[in-house]
């Protein structure tokens, strides 16, 4: 009788442990089933959710392939998502990388996180906007622009980047912290095109003019629209968003009579070790296609085409992505220190 009771109790102990593990494991299939689903493609996406979600919805409708999307977060931008992709490189979750610019894709490619894939839909894209080895393909150009407040307008016409350092706008200018995203890329471009000395001097001038460093480009556009600042350096889509949300601001593409502005294509790439490679290739073909680019321009996320001759004309700085990516870390660190007056 005691032996029977002991057995019953041992069984009870084992049952309880199995129950705990069972409950935990029971939640696994929810993910596992989806993880291996043949009709799925997982995307790490640094393109803003309000635009990208519409593109993915269209892709799902056309192909029946379900997209699972991880978006970035404004403050850490695409750098955070790219870091995640790198950290998972031994067992990638993602199939497709859709970056908001090309510099990080260059980095991811050099670190072996991407697989080459030359999409037939990208044949007509200008060579400067795609990787020669097919590691990434650019589509839908955005640009760095100046957001001009209509609520607290500058006392002179705005034409270029130099206006940010104009003393007449002291303490009335703003930009995003160059920790990540387009602002970091912009700084890296200036370091490459102007040379480190001139770029550093410009950062010093901006600090001298009391430039405010905000949490993201969207915040810059919003604050300019609210009249807190007269002039802000941001992205064209953030100006569009702020304007749509009731902000009173206009947009100036800087230095169109000079060297031009930084034009940034979004970049699409196949992740190395993708679990759904065929679906991933279908999505890449879709994303770099003309229709999606047109839609992104219509949605006012992008303003210009990577195919040339489409959309408005823009004078853009010619960027050596590899050179800019190499100096990215220095530009980011040094630029931030100078902008903060350190």
């Amino acid at each position: 009788m005691p032996r029977l009771r002991m057995r019953r109790q041992m069984f009870g102990a084992a049952a309880c442990v199995v129950l705990v593990l069972g409950v935990l494991l029971a939640s696994g299939p929810y993910g596992c089933n989806r993880g291996i689903a043949a009709d799925e493609v997982v995307v790490y996406c640094a393109v803003d959710e309000p635009y990208a979600s519409q593109i993915f919805a269209e892709f799902e409708k056309q192909t029946g392939i379900r997209t699972t999307v991880q978006y970035d977060i404004e403050s850490s931008k695409s750098v955070g998502l790219a870091g995640k992709l790198e950290a998972e490189s031994e067992h990638p979750r993602a199939d497709v990388w859709w970056g908001s610019e090309a510099f990080l894709s260059v980095r991811l490619g050099s670190e072996g996180a991407l697989s080459p894939y030359k999409s037939p839909a990208a044949a007509d894209i200008l060579a400067q906007f795609k990787d020669a080895d097919g590691l990434w393909t650019g589509t839908a150009l955005r640009a760095r622009v100046l957001a001009v407040s209509m609520k607290s307008p500058p006392p002179f016409p705005i034409t270029g980047m130099g206006d940010l350092a104009d003393p007449r706008l002291k303490n009335k200018v703003a930009m995003s912290r160059p920790t990540a995203g387009a602002t970091g890329a912009h700084l890296a471009t200036l370091y490459t095109v102007w040379g480190p000395e001139k770029a550093a001097a410009f950062c010093r001038d901006l600090h001298g003019n009391g430039i405010a460093l905000l949490g993201g480009n969207a915040e810059v556009a919003d604050q300019v629209g609210a009249g807190t600042y007269s002039l802000g350096l941001t992205d064209n889509d953030d100006v569009t968003n702020a304007s749509a949300n009731g902000g009173r601001l206009s947009m100036v593409v800087p230095d169109q009579d000079g060297p031009g502005t930084l034009a940034m294509p979004t970049s699409v790439a196949l992740v190395k070790g993708s679990k759904h490679e065929q679906n991933a290739k279908k999505l890449i073909d879709f994303l770099v296609g003309k229709q999606v680019e047109r839609k992104l321009i219509d949605l006012k996320f992008a303003r210009w085409s990577v195919r040339g001759g489409e959309g408005e004309a823009i004078k853009a700085i010619e960027v050596d992505y590899h050179a800019a990516a190499k100096i990215y870390a220095r530009a980011q660190r040094e630029g931030e220190a100078l902008l903060e007056g350190r």
Binding site: L24, L25, S27, G28, P29, Y30, G31, C32, G35, E88, E90, H91, R93
Partner: peptide
Amino acid sequence: RPGLSFWAYDTAV
């Protein structure tokens, strides 16, 4: 880690 991704890292666990 590769060995743990399928049942834990990629799931709700």
